[in-house]
């Protein structure tokens, strides 16, 4: 039997989470495009979109608190709403990171799209998929999907370290200050990608908690 009130409230929260996810995904896509094309207008739009993501976080946060006050949820209902509350923070942080990356892109505008940029973009594409998969797995309560995302984080970490080594090598031989600045920005952006993947991993861990009640260490 359904609990009509609780199910309707949760469905509303899921819909809002879906909208927030769409905003976050658009931010990541635009961030990648801004990086590829050195498109500063697009980068600014990503920074503006961060405000919408923050507003969405506050709205869903409020809905979660209202849900708890109204329904005094227990068991899976409680785990679900507690997880949404945690996931919100991860999504909001992802929004912040896309905005921060776009700020870093400004320093790259004088420099042509390089091999390192290409690797950063490949990393970003992978991370985008991870974030999308993590939220989809949450909505579908897909444990396997969650574990896949968690496992993939190691691949991202390795890719980041390879990229980092490459940038450090390039820095060693670089004497031009502008070039050094650009390489440092690229290193920062690569690190941000690794952080994005960590947030996707966090989201996936909350899926495991929601479904099984167990904390992934």
């Amino acid at each position: 039997m359904a609990n009509i009130k609780i199910d309707a409230d949760l469905s509303g929260i899921y819909q809002s989470l879906g909208r927030m996810m769409t905003l976050v995904d658009e931010a990541i896509v635009d961030m990648i495009m801004a990086l590829k094309k050195r498109d500063l207008k697009l980068a600014e739009r990503v920074m503006d979109r961060d405000e919408q993501i923050n507003a969405m976080e506050i709205k869903i946060d409020h809905d979660c608190i209202l849900f708890i006050a109204r329904n005094q949820p227990v068991a899976k209902d409680l785990r679900t709403v507690a997880s949404v509350h945690k996931i919100l923070t991860d999504l909001e942080r992802i929004g912040d990171i896309t905005a921060d990356v776009c700020k870093a892109i400004i320093t790259l505008k004088e420099f042509a799209y390089s091999e390192i940029d290409e690797e950063i973009v490949a990393l970003a594409e992978d991370v985008r998929k991870m974030v999308g998969d993590s939220v989809r797995s949450f909505v579908n309560e897909d444990l396997k999907g969650a574990y896949d995302v968690i496992e993939y984080d190691d691949t991202i970490d390795q890719a980041y370290y390879r990229l980092k080594d490459k940038i450090v090598l390039a820095l060693k031989v670089q004497t031009d200050t502008m070039q050094v600045n650009s390489l440092v920005s690229q290193l920062t952006i690569a690190k941000y990608m690794e952080k994005l993947a960590d947030h996707a991993q966090n989201i996936s861990e909350w899926i495991i908690f929601t479904v099984s009640g167990e904390y992934k260490a």
Partner: peptide, 13 residues
């Protein structure tokens, strides 16, 4: 928080 039996889950939720 984490009932083991689905019947418990159904009842308390």
């Amino acid at each position: 928080a984490t009932p083991q039996n689905p019947k418990t889950e159904e009842y308390i939720t």
